[in-house]
Simulated scan of single mutants.
Amino acid sequence: MDIGDVRYELYGLLSGNPYSSEPLNALDFETDRELLLELRGFVRLAAVEAAVERSIREKRPAFFLITGVGRSGRTSLANHIIYLYQRTAAADRSRFPFVVHGVERDDMTHDAYRLLRSTLLSLRNKMKSRHIRIPDELSDRFDALSLRGPADAMDEYDLQAIAQDTALAFASCDAGFGVRYESVSTKKLLTQATKVFETAATVVVFTVDTYEHADTVQLTQADRRAFARHGVVVDLNTLTPRQIAALADGRWTGQPPSPFDSKGVESAFSTRPYTIGQAMRLLEVLLDCRLVEYERDTPWPIEDLRMSESWLQLKMWQVEKWNGLRGGSHG
């Protein structure tokens, strides 16, 4: 067997390693919808879903602010919230077209007006591509907005009127939209976006990095309280060893049971904190290591494919040692 030959079929894994740490996208991929786990309190999905349902029932916007360091699961949760909104809004309807305007990390700027203007004009274009009728008055407002750059900015209440009429136009066609802002870099976007979409029936999700660098907004407790008056604040912290053990078990998609010894996972991951992205990457590597070391053809469940506490501790020590020699980290 070649050293790079990872035989996932021995574990009954039909789609490769289940611990791939790419962000989940529940709106576009049905298979991702069951993969976002609560993990013993890491995410309180019932509370998130209740907030979404309440906003739809009361015909008001659903605002969410998700904070956390890199690889803490912010994007996956943001996508899941938008999916929950779409699913709830589409209940009892045979057809419910839904579009999302997303501003990714690399496109985030400190110019809140430019971002909001682009959001509204993007929604106009999506309406046209989905053949959603744009009323004449709204069309005129869009035309005016396209000519009003940052040097001649529209008042936020004019933007609010455009957002409200946009939401009404979507609703008149049994359709809806959502907005996602990744790695927000200015507080103005939080305050102005909640004002602009204050009267629109939609979902707007912001993610914020909690580590300090020039492109990160630093939120005070006062900022968080101010946002909480409009929506829900969700903090994604590092995982406890017990939560990582639940992650190893919950994301397993192969032949049951999971080959990870739960107590062993707790022990091996107890030396320092890990984000969910870091933990997923390490579980991915550990699974591959176990398979590469295995030379027989007998499939799981078999003792030689089980990841025992002693094996996990040794491999985690080796990974940390190698990482230290490289001068790097998992984050």
Rank of each mutant, 00 (worst) to 15 (best):
A201M: 09
T202K: 06
T202M: 03
T202C: 15
T202N: 12
V204R: 05
V204M: 06
V204S: 07
V205R: 05
F206Q: 08
F206T: 05
T207P: 04
V208G: 05
Y211L: 13
Y211N: 09
Y211S: 12
Y211T: 14
E212A: 11
E212N: 05
H213S: 15
H213C: 13
A214R: 13
D215A: 13
T216L: 00
Q218L: 12
T220V: 02
Q221T: 14
D223R: 01
R224K: 14
R224N: 02
R224H: 01
R225G: 08
R225N: 15
A226L: 02
A226Y: 03
F227Q: 08
F227M: 09
F227H: 08
A228M: 10
A228W: 03
A228P: 11
A228T: 12
R229E: 15
R229M: 14
G231L: 14
V233M: 12
V233P: 13
V234I: 15
D235I: 01
N237Y: 08
N237V: 13
T238W: 05
L239G: 09
L239P: 10
P241M: 03
Q243I: 09
I244L: 06
I244F: 03
A246F: 01
D249S: 08
D249Q: 10
D249L: 01
D249F: 00
R251K: 10
R251Q: 11
W252M: 06
T253K: 12
Q255W: 09
Q255R: 15
Q255H: 08
P256L: 09
P256Y: 04
P256V: 08
S258N: 11
P259L: 02
P259Y: 07
F260P: 14
D261G: 06
K263E: 15
K263S: 10
K263C: 06
G264W: 02
G264L: 06
G264D: 07
E266K: 07
S267M: 10
A268W: 00
A268I: 05
A268R: 05
F269P: 00
F269E: 00
